[in-house]
Simulated assay, not measured.
Amino acid sequence: MSFQTEIIKWYKINKRDLPWRSTTDPYVIWLSEIILQQTRVEQGLPYFNKFLENFPTVKTFAGATETEVLKLWQGLGYYSRGRNMLFTAKQVMELHSGNFPKDYDKLIELKGIGDYTAAAISSFSNDQSKAVLDGNVFRVLSRYFGIEEPINSTTGKKIFSALAQSLIEGQKPSVYNQAIMEFGALQCKPKSPSCSICPLQVGCFALKNHKVNVLPVKLKKVKVRERWFNYFVALQGDKILIKQRKPGDVWQQMYDFPLIETSGPVGLNVTQFNDTVKEMFGNDIKIKSLMQKKHILTHQIIYVHFFGLENYMINFNMHTDIKSVMVEDFAVLPHPKVISDFFELYLQNKPNI
């Protein structure tokens, strides 16, 4: 049997029952594809269900506010995806009269939709012969055909793209694309793949040449930036100090606490740090260390230190980005995951803050 035939045969037996596989609605498929970017199916499925429940059509999505979208997205990471989705929904309303396009060439013109997503939507909804190339597909092709060119190099991308497109020719695109992606996700996994029961083992280059753990090859990532965020949890009665993050940095437009970013970790005995805190919150301020957490992003590691404040005073005319709101109002705003995790703990242990 051919590579494609074996993949499809395996898929029909082993595929997962996922809600977006039972529809050809490009809007629903788009939702699933964007949510599952950089996200495992198990983690993304509840978010997909929430979004579809709240926004059953692209029209309802386009009518949402950014705050509503970010709140639903909270905890999923890569928040620009959520903002781009809202922009895309509005584009569909303006450019396509609310009819989500199924054609690759029209899809690729929408914000947040690249080659992979356009190929996925057009093939799943319209059987357009466009091969998908995601991490799972790169891995399967690299191992089976023995391609050692880095998957994220310019040359590598051209090689894989040409091969993937040649393999989809003559196949039913909606089935074949789903099959090879599922095969990579469940069978040809990144670590400890099930090679002993793999239907492609006879022709697999990586298995024959003991390179399963070597392929695919990927160029090294850029250097990870380290940052130190010192958050201040300032509570007075049922009110708490918050601020909305500005554009141009992580978690833009989401809500967190007042903070001082430092070039390294600080302790309560660091004079410069304490002086800066007093400038913000008054000389009578009392500071208590509450919690420290390491938060890992794609290109950043953020070391977060939460401090509780007592006897604080703040000049809101000077610090216009800081607001005092009811705790219950802050709870419904969108937060970065590190803030929402702390906030849940805070709600359970309010007297200790």
Rank of each mutant, 00 (worst) to 15 (best):
residue 95 L to T: 03
residue 249 D to S: 02
residue 193 P to C: 14
residue 320 T to F: 04
residue 249 D to W: 12
residue 200 L to D: 01
residue 85 M to G: 04
residue 75 G to T: 04
residue 89 A to H: 11
residue 199 P to D: 04
residue 115 D to S: 12
residue 233 V to F: 05
residue 205 F to M: 02
residue 121 I to G: 00
residue 213 N to T: 00
residue 285 I to M: 11
residue 283 N to K: 14
residue 336 P to K: 15
residue 187 Q to R: 15
residue 191 K to P: 05
residue 129 S to L: 13
residue 304 V to N: 05
residue 182 E to V: 04
residue 73 W to I: 00
residue 244 Q to T: 08
residue 97 S to R: 09
residue 313 M to K: 08
residue 314 I to S: 00
residue 60 T to I: 09
residue 256 D to Q: 06
residue 175 V to I: 15
residue 300 Q to E: 13
residue 251 W to A: 10
residue 320 T to H: 07
residue 132 V to W: 08
residue 350 K to P: 06
residue 337 K to A: 09
residue 147 I to E: 02
residue 148 E to L: 09
residue 259 L to N: 14
residue 277 V to L: 12
residue 68 E to R: 00
residue 222 V to M: 14
residue 90 K to S: 11
residue 273 F to C: 03
residue 17 D to Y: 08
residue 209 N to P: 04
residue 276 T to E: 13
residue 303 Y to I: 06
residue 34 I to V: 14
residue 152 N to A: 06
residue 337 K to S: 13
residue 58 V to I: 01
residue 43 Q to L: 15
residue 73 W to L: 02
residue 169 E to P: 04
residue 108 I to H: 13
residue 184 G to L: 12
residue 271 T to C: 01
residue 341 D to M: 14
residue 339 I to R: 15
residue 5 T to S: 11
residue 64 A to E: 15
residue 244 Q to H: 04
residue 318 M to G: 03
residue 93 M to E: 08
residue 78 Y to H: 13
residue 302 I to A: 12
residue 196 S to V: 13
residue 203 G to N: 14
residue 223 K to T: 06
residue 236 Q to F: 06
residue 156 G to H: 06
residue 26 P to C: 06
residue 107 L to P: 02
residue 83 R to F: 03
residue 221 K to Y: 01
residue 306 F to K: 09
residue 223 K to Y: 01
residue 230 N to G: 00
residue 11 Y to A: 07
residue 15 K to W: 09
residue 339 I to F: 15
residue 182 E to Q: 07
residue 139 R to Y: 14
residue 125 S to K: 13
residue 287 I to F: 00
residue 202 V to C: 01
residue 310 E to A: 06
residue 80 S to A: 07
residue 171 Q to H: 09
residue 241 L to E: 02
residue 161 S to E: 05
residue 313 M to V: 12
residue 346 Y to L: 11
residue 232 F to W: 03
residue 92 V to H: 13
residue 84 N to H: 11
residue 183 F to S: 05
residue 291 M to P: 07
residue 314 I to H: 00
residue 180 I to E: 07
residue 327 V to R: 11
residue 32 S to W: 06
residue 73 W to R: 02
residue 126 N to Q: 06
residue 145 F to K: 11
residue 135 G to I: 12
residue 196 S to M: 12
residue 291 M to K: 08
residue 158 K to Q: 05
residue 258 P to E: 01
residue 48 F to G: 00
residue 8 I to D: 04
residue 135 G to W: 15
residue 183 F to V: 12
residue 270 V to Y: 03
residue 343 F to E: 01
residue 226 E to Q: 13
residue 312 Y to I: 07
residue 311 N to A: 06
residue 53 E to L: 04
residue 154 T to Q: 03
residue 260 I to M: 06
residue 302 I to N: 14
residue 131 A to L: 11
residue 352 N to H: 08
residue 118 A to W: 11
residue 85 M to E: 03
residue 343 F to R: 15
residue 37 Q to M: 02
residue 266 V to G: 05
residue 281 F to Q: 12
residue 104 Y to T: 02
residue 323 K to I: 07
residue 194 S to D: 14
residue 332 V to E: 08
residue 329 D to N: 02
residue 237 G to S: 04
residue 80 S to M: 11
residue 331 A to Y: 10
residue 273 F to V: 04
residue 331 A to D: 05
